[in-house]
Design a protein around this nucleic acid. Structure first.
Lengths: 342, 342
DNA sequence: TTGTAAGCGTTATCAT
DNA sequence: ATGATAACGCTTACAA
């Protein structure tokens, strides 16, 4: 049977309260007792009991903020479902979730929103913009005792608690592998990425190129263009790309704007359509797969991204210990038309 | 804040003990109080608190048996890892797992083992053989108060608590979809299934045929043969099939024996190898994907099959309520060579 | 049949 | 700085 605080207190001859103070770093303990308790706990291999913690935690009440740059992006609907699911499960433990969604990537405005939202918050789950301004804001919150979990996209140079989301490089590798199988290993490629300024998009391209170099000698890259994650821009740029490079017979869509690109394909390549692999099996992408315009999508478990980020924030509030991994990465799941039958 | 037993007892004017008796069907309660408590509980939307239950349950100790027809089948190594993971998590709650593995599908012997193993067991997780003998045994255990969870394969005509495992029909559909993409929609197919007596294998074939009929007009089935889940038999039968049907350019491997079949392909079709889709990304299958002999595998989350079955058995012991679904089905995940990079 | 009280492991509060 | 005690929600042994 597992070791309890009570056993530690008996074996080391101090009260349960003192053991609790030591094990949770609450201070006000003499160095000797501190050392003693730590030693006994280590000796016995103490592992806190989650049920006990959870029960005691009901007396508290936590508010977790969730701030997502999600508006207009169907991918995030599933993320939000995951957030809601976690909220429901944790309601028993006195957890409240305060969800804010926003549009766009203006870092000044985002920093402002973070500041106002975080007023009476115990933790924040955030899709950051990769900017020093936001990193500073995250650090300020962290210093003020409000841990920050980044979800779906990460940020450099901040002391966020951890990142939970897509494994971009791996996604690019799988996408290339899928095109290798779809084309039989020979293709003239067009790549449409979101933005050259978005870290994750670039990591996807890098992963793609890595596999292409290593195991697709028959691939040649005709052109790389952006969509700015926008269907209209995607349509225009794909149109131009397809006209300028009539040899293109495979498309890698590394970000959003999928529908726009596919419209261009239908309008200007109805005869010999290219093979298309894209990301995120959102409802519009599923329809494109039904119509056999997109052959495969790489999915990154949006539901889990939302669910896990709230759960992780709560675990930290509960235990005070950061998650084992600095980055919790989703699997890249290949989905095709038949994945959704029945 | 969530509703508690204490609140129900106060509102209905009975003791907490009585509320507990009613809500958990322990009997010894007058019909009036029973009705009253039920009504108040429903009114308030009472949901038992898991942490409280778990904590109280530590005073008990449960033994969960796991009996797997797994020996010689690498698929089950991951299932067992999942079982072990659940065991570790539940150790806190006084749960012990007793794991037995066996070889073969002899139902008489299996029934015997069930009887001896189940001696001092609170629940049993089992890969059954689809035979009336085993169904009877399951029913006997169930009647004796030992619930049985079937994992990976199901059995008809028994009162097992629930089934947790592969969604065979869906797997067959996805496999056909994958071959559709790999071949460009035109292929002469060979199918190698495990056994015509195994329900799951037949369901896979049925799912495959469903998609083939609906959306693969260019597919023709040359021959269907079995491997008896055995590499040697798979080798021999594939050898014969490939010689008898030189037009075959795509193989659907619906069960085990993958390595044997692939050896036959290498020995007798080195020039124009067929496209191959199979199930379960076990280590040998991964190697075959590395060598580009198998193009894709359909994986069915063996780890989760093991983990979820133990967890589900425990939840039932804890709460007395069966899982919401009668069958808990895994996703069919497509994996390719690049899924395992890094 | 019904109620009471103790206990599961952890934490917070109040004394000392 | 330290200890004692009560509380979180639920179960159960025992008393009435």
């Amino acid at each position: 049977m597992a070791v309890t605080i009570k056993q530690i207190s008996e074996l080391s001859g101090v009260s349960r309260g003192t053991v609790d103070r030591v094990l949770n770093g609450r201070g006000h303990v003499s160095p000797e007792k501190d050392a003693l308790v730590r030693q006994v706990a280590k000796q016995l291999g103490y592992q806190p009991n989650m049920a006990g913690k959870a029960l005691a935690a009901r007396k508290k009440s936590y508010t977790i903020g969730v701030l997502l740059c999600s508006e207009g992006n169907p991918f995030f609907e599933e993320v939000i479902r995951g957030v809601r699911a976690a909220e429901k499960e944790l309601a028993d433990f006195g957890v409240q979730v305060r969800l804010h969604t926003r549009k766009g990537y203006n870092d000044v405005r985002l920093a402002e929103e973070m500041r106002t939202l975080a007023k009476d918050l115990h933790a924040l789950v955030l899709t950051p913009v990769n900017s020093p301004l936001i990193a500073d804001e995250i650090n300020a919150l962290t210093d003020a005792g409000t841990p920050v979990v980044t979800v779906n996209t990460d940020i450099e140079g901040s002391r966020r608690l951890c990142y939970i989301g897509s494994d971009y490089a791996a996604g690019g590798r799988v996408a290339c592998g899928m095109l290798r199988l779809l084309t039989g290993g020979t293709a003239h490629l067009g790549i449409l990425t979101g933005s050259l300024k978005v870290l994750g998009h670039n990591q996807r391209i890098a992963g793609f190129r890595e596999v292409m170099k290593k195991s697709c000698p028959g691939f040649t890259l005709s052109e790389l263009e952006t969509t700015e994650d926008d269907d209209i821009i995607g349509y225009e740029n794909a149109k131009r790309m397809l006209h300028a490079n009539p040899e293109i017979d495979a498309l890698f869509l590394a970000a959003a704007g999928v529908y726009g690109v596919c419209r261009a394909v239908q309008d200007f390549r109805r005869e010999s359509p290219p093979k298309i692999v894209c990301f995120d099996a959102t409802p519009p992408v599923r329809e494109l797969m039904q119509a056999n315009i997109v052959q495969a999508a790489i999915d990154q478990q949006p539901f889990r991204q939302g669910y896990d980020s709230v759960q992780t924030a709560y675990q930290y509030l509960l235990t005070g210990t950061p998650p084992k991994q600095d980055r919790i990465l989703m699997e890249n799941q290949i989905v095709i038309r038949e994945s959704f039958l029945r």
